Amino acid sequence: MLVGMMGCGKTVLGRWLGRRSGLPIYDLDRMVSRREHRSISALFEKKGEAYFRRREAEALRQALALPPGIVSTGGGTFVFEENRRLLLERGFVVYLEAPLDLLEARLRESRGRPLLDSMVDRRQALQELLEKRAPFYRMAHLTVRVAGQGEEELGESVWRAYCEQIEGAE
């Protein structure tokens, strides 16, 4: 279960872990977008954030009912208590912690980010979101700092931590 801010690398790491493990990948944003037949940005614009969050929670419950796999959450998923409880109870939750400068650099040219796209000062909006969400993210089973790590190095460190968790549970 991968949690963290937009731009921290959940989707990329999810794909890497899927290749490494052979497990299916459940990307909640992609699941919502497919079910609604529109992009997340369009969904926010047409139906609002509250509607999106309800669909996101449904996608999470759906993903958790499927065969075990890698769950890549949206940036806000883990902030909501019921989602957080489900993720913590049903899986090994990894927070991909990225500093503001890295997030800003990764998201600088990115569009389709409804919580940032309408902001004049994207950095300020990103910082406020990070400050609001970080206490929730830190409730994850494992925090991994992504700055300074390549995809392979990050993937291997998360994979090892997951395997150690599984071995310790047996």
Rank of each mutant, 00 (worst) to 15 (best):
V158P: 01
L88R: 14
L66N: 09
P67E: 14
S39D: 10
F92N: 00
A42S: 15
F52K: 10
I25L: 15
R122L: 12
E82F: 01
P67C: 03
R111P: 02
Y95L: 08
E153R: 14
L107D: 12
V158R: 00
L103F: 06
K10A: 06
G148Q: 06
L23W: 12
G112C: 11
F80N: 00
L129H: 03
F80M: 09
E109Y: 10
V32T: 10
Q124F: 09
A134C: 03
M5D: 04
E49G: 10
T73Q: 10
M139N: 09
G155S: 10
E58P: 06
R160T: 06
D29Y: 07
R111S: 13
R35D: 11
P135F: 00
L66K: 10
L129C: 00
C163K: 13
G69M: 09
L23D: 02
A134N: 10
R61S: 10
V12W: 09
G7A: 09
E49R: 11
E164G: 03
D27G: 05
P114A: 07
L87V: 08
L60Q: 02
C163L: 15
G14I: 10
A65R: 11
Y137K: 06
V146E: 00
R90L: 07
I40G: 11
I70F: 06
E156D: 12
H141D: 13
L17H: 05
L142S: 03
G22N: 10
G48M: 07
A59R: 02
H37C: 11
I166P: 00
L154P: 09
E104M: 12
M139A: 12
D121Q: 07
R111W: 08
S21G: 14
G150F: 00
N83P: 02
W159P: 05
D121F: 03
L60I: 04
A63Q: 01
L64S: 05
L102M: 11
G14R: 12
L64R: 11
P24N: 06
L102D: 04
F44K: 07
L87I: 04
N83D: 08
S21V: 03
R123A: 05
Y95A: 12
A50T: 13
L86N: 02
M119D: 04
Y51P: 00
L23M: 14
K47H: 13
T77A: 13
R34H: 11
G22M: 08
L130V: 02
R38V: 04
S157E: 10
K46L: 15
L88Q: 08
A134M: 07
S33V: 06
L103E: 07
L116A: 08
L88W: 06
W159C: 00
F44A: 05
